[in-house]
């Protein structure tokens, strides 16, 4: 039983990483109905920026963390304005290809600047276990969970309590009506990309201390993040977090209890996506749209 619970606990920790990247995916999906395949690579790029800030500018982790979030926001906005904007209104397939292009581009640029040698990345939380009810829990994992929950809360407050958040929701759901009310819809999309890039950056900075920092570090995480976002209902931030943690736990259990499960984890991630899309396309928390009949 303890062994089982131990797996659940470590699954929750990994799940939080998936959840954070899934949050970023959800933000762009909400803004423009688009799955951003480049989200992971953008996050990796941001994490390398923070690495440089820590190693070369000698900033402490949390200062670098804050600066990276801000820089990533600007980067996200710039990408939308410069790269995505010319394709606005084009079929979603065109936009998907654009994000694939961004994927390759960021992967290459990151490799070019920082190289492909694995780097140790010192995070903001100590990596030491605390024993709780016979379970070993890493302080770092508790920190990750905390950061993800804070991020979820902030996003919730942003979307429900602020004018910009409301305008972003209106602009993504009803672009034509929003324009008539004076909303600069294009900038709202850019804001969505900026937020997503920031959230993705947090995700990268949370995961890098656990694995190693390298240009390909987010690729398998991206698949699980997609699984998490789809499971949670691709438009729901809360769903992304619940979905992420569920996927994390599921993968930990698959890895432990199914023979050869470690190697099958990616396949299971894919199975989750397919099953959810077949059985309940709106996911756990996706609102089936309300209307009068």
């Amino acid at each position: 039983m303890t062994a089982f619970l131990q797996q659940v606990v470590s699954g929750i920790a990994t799940g939080c990483i998936y959840a954070s990247l899934a949050l970023a995916l959800v933000l762009i999906y909400r803004a423009m109905d688009l799955a951003n395949f480049a989200q992971g690579e953008m996050a990796t790029f941001s994490t390398f920026m923070s690495y440089s800030l820590i190693e070369y500018a000698h900033l402490d982790f949390w200062t670098a963390f804050a600066i990276t979030i801000a820089l990533s926001f600007v980067l996200g906005v710039a990408i939308e304005r410069v790269v995505v904007r010319p394709f606005e209104g084009k079929p979603v397939l065109t936009l998907l290809i654009v994000t694939l292009g961004l994927f390759t581009m960021f992967n290459g640029i990151t490799g070019q600047i920082w190289g492909y040698v694995f780097k140790t990345y010192r995070g903001g939380f100590p990596s030491e276990p605390v024993v709780f009810g016979g379970l070993y829990i890493n302080k770092q994992d508790i920190g990750v969970l905390g950061v993800v929950l804070v991020m979820l809360l902030l996003l919730y407050l942003f979307f429900s309590r602020t004018k910009a958040g409301l305008a972003m929701r209106a602009a993504s759901l009803y672009p034509d009506s929003s324009k008539l009310l004076g909303v600069r819809v294009g900038w709202m999309l850019a804001l969505g990309w900026g937020l997503a890039a920031s959230v993705g950056a947090v995700s990268g900075m949370l995961v890098a201390p656990i694995i190693f920092l390298d240009p390909n570090m987010m690729q398998s995480i991206l698949l699980f993040a997609f699984a998490a976002a789809v499971l949670g209902g691709i438009e729901s931030p809360l769903g992304a977090v619940v979905g992420g943690i569920t996927i994390g736990v599921l993968m930990a259990l698959v890895g432990t209890y199914i023979p050869g499960g470690q190697d099958l984890r990616l396949a299971f991630g894919l199975i989750v996506i397919v099953v959810v899309l077949l059985v309940r396309p709106s996911g756990l928390f996706g609102r089936a749209s309300v209307r009068r009949v």
Partner: peptide, 22 residues
Amino acid sequence: PEGRGTLGQLTVWENLQMGAYT
């Protein structure tokens, strides 16, 4: 506009807030 341009998934209050957006 034609078809009223209702921001259907938003509440009545949010619709009015969006009116005052600028």
